[in-house]
């Protein structure tokens, strides 16, 4: 195994998440302010695990209406259709837009599910103080942060279509209730990813070395 690696927390230091300055804090608990930019700094994000769980559980619950309720209603004189996220993807695929259909499938279905599962695994591993594959878990977290925002894609598509297709009897597009639930899932999982502290992945490996 690796030799003892010095961490900031192990030496009673804290780094500022705004300006990066490292400073010594006398108290191990309690609030400290960065000497350079006066931001309140913590050794680890406070209540990271419990807040992250709360956000993820809320997102799991809303994930169902987000996928079951229609997010878009299209109507004209003769036709009316309601689309959920999945039926929208299928409709695009059937009409021959394979590329766009794949992009929407990845952004709207794969990414939210991937985020929820990845964050759940990360939280469980951190709570078990797992020392299993830390580098892979760190990369997984980086990927969660990177791809999360792209789920907003469908919200923007619905907004644009509903804004444009307002041609009275000829054609109208309306946003459906599923859009609200879907937007909430995206926002909640983004907050959850921000609340998760990746340093918790590495702590169990290094505590052994410090003690």
């Amino acid at each position: 195994m690796k030799q003892a690696e010095p961490t900031a927390a192990g030496l009673g230091l804290r780094s500022c998440h705004i300006c990066g300055l490292l400073s010594r804090s006398d108290e191990s608990a309690g609030a400290t302010h960065c000497p350079r930019c006066r931001t309140q700094i913590h050794s680890r994000k406070p209540n990271s695990v419990s807040h992250c769980w709360a956000l993820i559980i809320a997102a799991y619950i809303l994930y169902l209406p987000a996928n079951l309720l229609p997010i878009m209603e299209t109507g004209s004189l003769f036709t009316y259709r309601e689309d959920t996220i999945m039926s929208g993807v299928v409709h695009l695929w059937k009409t021959g837009f394979w590329g766009i259909s794949t992009i929407v499938f990845i952004a709207s279905i794969m990414v939210p599910l991937f985020k929820l599962i990845a964050l759940t695994l990360l939280l469980i591993s951190v709570q078990c103080r797992s020392t299993w594959w830390p580098m892979q878990r760190a990369k997984l977290y980086r990927l969660v942060e990177l791809v999360g925002r792209w789920s907003m894609l469908d919200i923007y598509v619905v907004t644009l279509l509903a804004g444009l297709v307002q041609l009275r009897s000829l054609a109208t597009v309306k946003a459906g209730a599923g859009a609200i639930a879907f937007g909430a899932v995206v926002v909640l999982t983004m907050f959850a990813a921000m609340k998760f502290d990746p340093r918790l992945i590495w702590d169990p490996l290094r505590k052994e070395n410090i003690l």
Partner: peptide, 17 residues
């Protein structure tokens, strides 16, 4: 009181010094 230590930095993601 806090005092500065340079030029050490801590990694944002794993806290390594």
């Amino acid at each position: 009181m806090a005092h500065q230590i340079e030029p050490l930095i801590a990694c944002r993601e794993c806290d390594l010094l």
